[in-house]
Design a protein around this nucleic acid. Structure first.
Length: 152
DNA sequence: GCCAACGTTGGC
DNA sequence: GCCAACGTTGGC
């Protein structure tokens, strides 16, 4: 099993939105970055654990845990001209973009903020903290996962 | 709102 | 293939 971190803006789709979905599950649509796509399409497996990260908000940080709930499949929002994430280069016969379903596991007892994570030398290699990293999905090592959870 | 750090696009 | 222009992300 692998570990991941996925960013979302709480004003758009936060951890509480995921919890409120039927089956507490939602497809992770809208990813339009090839690196992030490759991780979802090629590396994520059902049961992988995910840190749910709130970005672009008052206190950016890890707010909960989710898990991968499906194999990857084409992101159908790319096919819809009316969708914000429409991409004319992707079509159902040869989709460009993929996604997985993500299921709510639990909220953390408190937000582990980006500010706090930055103070931990043990997390120097965490992709989230690397300079200029804007990927919305990134891998987390088992060691990093355990260390961060122990902060809770 | 600002701006650094990207990734993408398109002219050449 | 190069690279300038442009758009986006996301912390602050």
């Amino acid at each position: 099993m692998r570990y991941w971190l996925m960013k979302s803006e709480p004003e758009t789709f936060g951890i509480d939105d995921l919890r409120a979905r039927p089956q507490q599950t939602e497809h992770w649509d809208g990813v339009r970055n090839y690196q992030a796509r490759n991780m979802m399409r090629d590396e994520m497996k059902i049961g992988d654990q995910i840190f749910f990260y709130h970005s672009n908000c008052d206190e950016p940080g890890i707010v909960g845990i989710a898990e991968v709930a499906s194999e990857s499949y084409p992101d159908f929002t790319a096919f819809d001209p009316d969708d914000k994430h429409f991409d004319p280069k992707s079509n159902p016969d040869k989709p460009t973009w993929f996604m997985v379903d993500v299921k709510f596991v639990r909220k953390l007892a408190r937000t582990i903020s980006l500010r706090e994570l930055k103070t931990k030398s043990e997390l120097g290699e965490l992709a989230l903290l690397r300079r200029g990293n804007r990927l919305s999905i990134m891998p987390v090592s088992a060691e990093q996962w355990a260390f961060i959870l122990a902060l809770e």
